[in-house]
């Protein structure tokens, strides 16, 4: 099939970008979206043109590299899907596909469809850990963890750090990302010890980094490739409020 592409091109972080139109023939329905972009790039390079820069790595929806905003959806069409799992069978012959980078003040564009998501790393450094050195750990069965809590913690921990939640949120809020980490660790006895400190520090960092605030639209949950629910945001709010009213700074 033949498709038309409308792709954001931007030479570097400082340059002014614009949309570039491409047409691609011979697209196979069984191709993945990324393979389609690869074949576009292959064609562009051979024509002596600049290929489209975009990020991808594992192609198994787990590394969180891919970050394309396709036709109004972070990671394109399909529920609980990362860009690498979108296949061209989701599109029709003659379709126009608009591809944009994640848009957020905290995720500046580096080139074309590549953004700098370092803000997530900074959020993690603000408290997304348990303060334990190698060698200090007690026996893993010393602290029992109920199956329900362990499973719930896993659901939160499944976050791949891709940033689709920020991209989908009208406020560019990172609340779901923070909520997932805070909830995961607050649900486990190992993480509970510094749960309050973690909630306070991560939220403060999130605000500092220029993310917007949560207005509970639920767009993040709808677009999250791992289906992380906004009930974790309620949990974060709970943790944060309790911490604010009890923890002396």
């Amino acid at each position: 099939m033949k498709i038309k592409l409308n792709i954001w091109k931007q030479a570097n972080a400082k340059a002014k970008g614009k949309f570039e139109k491409y047409e691609l023939d011979g697209v196979d329905a069984e191709m993945s979206f990324l393979e389609m972009l690869d074949s576009l790039n292959e064609k562009l390079i051979k024509e002596g043109k600049e290929p489209v820069a975009y990020e991808h790595d594992c192609h198994e929806a787990i590394c969180g590299c891919c970050s394309l905003y396709i036709n109004g959806h972070p990671h394109g069409p399909g529920k609980e899907t990362a860009t690498c799992q979108v296949h061209m069978r989701s599109f029709k012959d003659g379709d126009t596909i608009t591809v944009e980078p994640w848009r957020a003040k905290s995720f500046p564009v580096l080139k074309d469809l590549m953004t700098d998501r370092n803000a997530f790393d900074k959020l993690m450094s603000a408290g997304g850990f348990v303060s334990i050195d190698a060698g200090q750990a007690p026996d893993a069965n010393a602290n029992l963890v109920g199956k329900i809590d362990a499973d719930k913690a896993f659901d939160a921990a499944a976050c791949i750090g891709c940033g689709a939640c920020v991209a989908a949120c009208k406020n560019s809020s990172a609340t779901l990302f923070v909520a997932a980490k805070v909830s995961q660790l607050a649900l486990l006895p190992q993480g509970k010890v510094e749960a309050k400190r973690r909630a306070l520090n991560m939220v403060a960092k999130m605000d500092e980094l220029g993310f917007g605030s949560c207005t509970n639209t639920g767009a993040c949950e709808a677009e999250c490739p791992k289906g992380i629910g906004i009930d974790f945001i309620a949990k974060l709010n709970r943790e944060y409020l309790c911490a604010s009213f009890s923890e002396s700074e």
Partner: peptide
């Protein structure tokens, strides 16, 4: 205040508006 700040969190808007499933009222 919150709305203003949230607007600032995305200086460059999308060309194709966000289609994520969310109620019109919430947005």
């Amino acid at each position: 205040y919150i709305t203003l700040k949230n607007q600032m969190a995305r200086p460059q808007k999308y060309k194709v508006a966000i289609k994520a499933k969310a109620s019109w009222a919430s947005k």
